[in-house]
């Protein structure tokens, strides 16, 4: 069991939450002027990084609000959670405890 901090409700068990993929994807303002490749990129293609990942989460069994989280996909450590609309927080991926294991060697 690990705890995730909902920006409203505070720390709750992970089973109250669901993850919904990459965050900060902005819908293009002029979809009809995009090439098929550009539109395909927006609709289907997502980053799949090893390490720091900004993602969308929802507190489904709690306040049912969406928020964003900065998570390390290797260690599963969540560096920060923040409300939608707030800017990406600065994260030190070389953090000696929670950073990428390969950076620590």
């Amino acid at each position: 069991m690990f705890l995730i901090k909902c920006p409203w409700c505070g720390e709750r068990d992970q089973s109250e939450f669901h993850a919904h993929g990459e965050a900060h994807i902005v819908r293009p303002e002029n979809p009809d002027q995009l090439s098929e490749e550009e539109w395909g990129d927006y609709v289907f293609f997502r980053k799949n990084p090893k390490g720091l990942h900004y993602e969308r989460w929802v507190h489904s069994h709690g306040c049912r609000r969406w928020f964003n989280a900065a998570r390390n996909t290797i260690t599963d450590h969540i560096y920060a959670t923040y409300k939608p609309g707030e800017p990406k927080p600065e994260i030190d991926v070389n953090d000696p405890i929670h950073g990428n294991p390969e950076n620590q060697r």
Partner: peptide, 10 residues
Amino acid sequence: ITQTRFGHAS
């Protein structure tokens, strides 16, 4: 009060 989970139920 709290909104939480019991089994599969909110």
